[in-house]
Every structure is written in structure tokens, then in C-alpha cells.
């Protein structure tokens, strides 16, 4: 039992918590930002302007086809080198995950708006609503309720994906646990710490994501439009 290294994990618990808070911070702030921008992009995607549509389509496909990890690397190493500017790894992760979420939500919002019956748009024009009033009072309230399950789902995916940012040096939970493992090995090379530590990490992630995915399923049932 000694070799499991649990006492080290308990000792380093405050540091783990710090790392965990960074994970949650980035996930939550990029989720909020991507909901905000996602609705704007979604509305823009339904516009009839060909140029806007084309550009948004290209960016959407880029974020769909290419893993966020690649974007992190490209923005962190590539942009720094190409333009000779200092990039902060936290800011880069926030930008990448926000853009990723924005286009996920944007595409969803676009598909929901196009699936609404045309009569709603015509009726709101007939009672004299301006374009902005139409979106604020008629279209968006329906879309927000319908996209709730997908937003919760995106939250779990963000939490699962944000741990990639330790590859560009953000000291989140993954990075902290690696340094704990190194310290323990230094003191006791026969320790089972890597097994214990990663197992605990798996459990922690599971305990956060599983309730969220249940909640998303519940919302889907509750708000499903038959």
C-alpha cells in the first residue's frame, strides 16, 4: 500500500486544486464566450451575402476537420515565430477553445434557424418588427431553448479537451500531476504513483462529466420538439 503514493497526492492536494481551477476557468470562460459569439455567427451564417457565407463556411470546416491540438500548436509556436510576438499560452488556449466552441454552436444555431417555418419570419415582418426585434423577440428565444442540450454537451467536451493545453505549457491539472509523479519517483523509484495519479484523474474527470452528460440527456428529453 505504501507504494501507491496516496500520501503524496494528499500532500500536494492544494496544488492539484490550483491546476483544476485553471482547467475550469478556461473551460467556463471559453464556453460563455462561445455561446455569445456562436449565436452571432449562427445568425450571420443564415445571411444571404455570398462572401460572408463562403468565409464562415471555410472557417467552420477548418475547425471541424482539424483537431484543436493542431490549432493550439499553430497559434502558440507558429504565430510567435512568424510575427515575432510574445504569446501567452493561456490566451492562446482561450482563443482556440472559444473559436472551436463558437463554430460548433454557430453551425447548430444556423441549422435551427433554417429549420424554423418561413411563416414566422413573414409574420414578424407583417406586424412591423424590425430585423433586430424579430431576432430578439421571436427567433432567438426558441433557438436558445432548443440548443440547451447541445450547449451542455459542448461543456463536457470542452472540459475533456482543455487538458490538451498542458502541451503548450499551461499549468493545469495534467501538468501538476506530472510534476507530482516526477517528485515521487525521485524519492521512491518503485512507487506505483503513475498508476494511482492517472486513475484519480480519470475518476475526477468522470465525476464532472458524467453528471453533465446525464443533464444534457435530460434536457434533450425535456425540450425535444416532436
Amino acid at each position: 500500500m505504501q507504494n501507491l503514493g496516496i500520501e503524496y497526492i494528499i500532500k500536494a492536494f492544494p496544488r492539484l486544486l490550483d491546476g483544476f481551477i485553471v482547467t475550469i476557468e478556461i473551460s467556463v470562460s471559453s464556453l460563455i464566450l462561445s455561446i455569445f459569439f456562436g449565436f452571432i455567427i449562427g445568425v450571420l451564417m443564415t445571411s444571404k451575402n455570398k462572401v460572408v457565407n463562403f468565409v464562415l463556411r471555410i472557417v467552420l470546416e477548418a475547425f471541424r476537420l482539424i483537431h484543436p491540438l493542431i490549432w493550439l500548436v499553430v497559434l502558440f509556436f507558429g504565430v510567435t515565430y512568424a510575427f515575432n510576438i510574445q504569446t501567452d499560452s493561456m490566451v492562446v488556449s482561450l482563443i482556440v477553445f472559444t473559436l472551436w466552441g463558437t463554430f460548433e454552436i454557430g453551425d447548430l444555431v444556423r441549422s435551427y434557424i433554417t429549420s424554423l417555418p418561413k411563416s414566422q419570419f413573414e409574420a414578424s415582418a407583417a406586424i412591423g418588427l424590425t430585423k433586430i426585434q424579430m431576432y430578439v423577440y421571436v427567433i432567438l428565444p426558441q433557438i436558445i431553448i432548443r440548443s440547451l442540450p447541445a450547449i451542455v454537451n459542448l461543456a463536457t467536451r470542452l472540459i475533456k479537451t482543455t487538458n490538451l493545453m498542458f502541451l503548450i505549457g499551461v499549468s493545469e491539472i495534467m501538468k501538476v500531476s506530472q510534476s507530482i509523479i516526477q517528485v515521487v519517483y525521485y524519492n521512491n523509484p518503485n512507487s506505483y504513483i503513475s498508476f494511482t495519479m492517472y486513475f484519480i484523474l480519470l475518476l475526477v474527470y468522470f465525476m464532472i462529466c458524467y453528471p453533465l452528460s446525464l443533464f444534457s440527456k435530460y434536457l434533450e428529453k425535456r425540450f425535444s420538439v416532436v
Binding site: 463536457t156 472540459i159 475533456k160 479537451t161 487538458n163 490538451l164 495534467m174 509523479i181 506505483y192 503513475s194 498508476f195 494511482t196 495519479m197 492517472y198 486513475f199 484523474l201 480519470l202 474527470y205 468522470f206 462529466c209 458524467y210 452528460s213
Partner: peptide
């Protein structure tokens, strides 16, 4: 199914690559 869907693949692969050899 629920376990694999709700944990990050990064941690899974670390667990299998660095954790499992111990036991």
C-alpha cells in the same frame, strides 16, 4: 461506454501507457 465517453482521451492514454505497466 459511460466511462470512456466521459473521460478525456489524453488521460486515458497516459493511464494505459504510464500507469498500467506498474501493475
Amino acid at each position: 461506454v459511460e466511462f470512456f465517453r466521459n473521460t478525456p482521451s489524453l488521460v486515458q492514454v497516459y493511464f494505459v501507457f504510464y500507469g498500467l505497466p506498474k501493475i
